[in-house]
Nucleic acid binder design. Structure first.
Lengths: 206, 206
DNA sequence: CTAGAATTTGAACGATGGTTCAAATTCTGA
DNA sequence: TCAGAATTTGAACCATCGTTCAAATTCTAG
């Protein structure tokens, strides 16, 4: 997890710390919404500031710049998804069921009404130096999912296939939902999550 | 198909026309490579010019600007994919086999060594006014694929499911391959195409 | 060969967007 | 209450990028 430094609060009072922390979180949420709405490249600092009801300059009091904001946004979502993947591993359910759970959580992390975020799909938007660690984390997640797929195949619960490629196909299908999903559409995000997971795992059941 | 106007050649000699046409095609190929390598937003006109071994200004002699270049790039790939989809419809093979053929062609259109292009995945990068027609064309393609999926279900060749959602899942999985595929990787683009198509259609076979 | 048209160049322009910063305002502890 | 620290503002700075254009060069018809 990217360490949250003390930027923007040299004050030590717990009261002030909490307020600073809250401001920072507010900014991140606002940024995540703009990133999701317009894409990272098209999201301007002025727009992020407006979304958070703040002046543009203040963003630089709480963060070093757009890159850092993006980094936190991506990190948060990836951590969330990693947690879901690790939770699934600890579960006694069958491999197909655990795989479905991970995929559902993945979709919800992106499309969820309140905290859905998609910035982590644009790791290349990070500058060199920040990118590597994020890619590593994303890869860790991918490996987690792939391990689940491979385990299912080994146990005979899933049909044999190229686990790496199938994993990428699954993740691609769910990631792409961020492009077409509309909150005001016919399907709720939970339904999308359920149907996608069912279809994708079905492609491997015997 | 977007009409190729006579921009950049008021000359009427067939000889000159052909040369102009060739220059234009060269520019489009160079642009497609840069778009694919860096993404549309990060691809600069100067970089496109350099990729084509030309000066930046000349691009504006052959095209009205970046938007038009992008438009042609997207249009070409979409037309290519549409042609493949329509060809599949005219084929006597089973629905699952036709679906696999379309998906394979789709992957090849993006990852093919020579002409693979991914700019059409970024329709939102087009300005209002150009975007609508491209979205319509993309949707036409999606409908074509969906029709195939629906037909297979109706005929009993494929398991019943939400055809629209499954189609999007399939297209997402193949589109995403543009993000992770590396020409110097373990798998050739044709192998990726084959395996993806197999897995995705398998998710619907009974 | 030569005049006029077509093509090409590259410097400069203007808009955009990330960022900085001096000054103003608000907050906190004593 | 008040001084000093923390926070906030918004105008200005600067780099980047799409684009323009006057001038230079190349091509072609007669």
């Amino acid at each position: 997890m990217v360490q949250i430094l003390n930027r923007g609060s040299t004050r030590t009072s717990p009261r002030a710390q909490r307020k600073t922390e809250a401001r920072r979180a507010e900014i991140l949420r606002a940024a995540a919404r703009v990133f999701r709405r317009k894409g990272v490249a098209a999201a301007g600092m002025r727009e992020i500031a407006e979304e958070a009801d703040l002046s543009p300059g203040i963003l630089y009091y709480y963060f070093s710049g757009k890159d850092e904001i993006l980094q936190y946004c991506q990190d948060r979502t990836l951590e969330h998804m990693l947690a879901a993947a690790e939770a699934a591993r600890a579960t006694p359910a069958s491999t197909p069921e655990r795989l479905r759970a991970v995929l559902r959580a993945h979709v919800q992390a992106m499309l969820g009404e309140l905290e859905g975020a998609t910035a982590h799909l644009e790791v290349e938007a990070l500058p060199e130096g920040m990118r590597e660690a994020m890619i590593a984390k994303r890869d860790r997640y991918e490996h987690e999912v792939r391990a689940l797929v491979a385990e299912g195949m080994k146990r005979g619960e899933l049909a044999k296939a190229d686990a790496a490629l199938v994993t990428r196909a699954m993740l691609g299908a769910v990631n792409w939902s961020a492009r077409w999903f509309r909150p005001d559409g016919k399907l709720r995000s939970a339904e999308v999550a359920q149907s996608l997971a069912d279809y994708l795992v079905r492609g491997l059941t015997k």
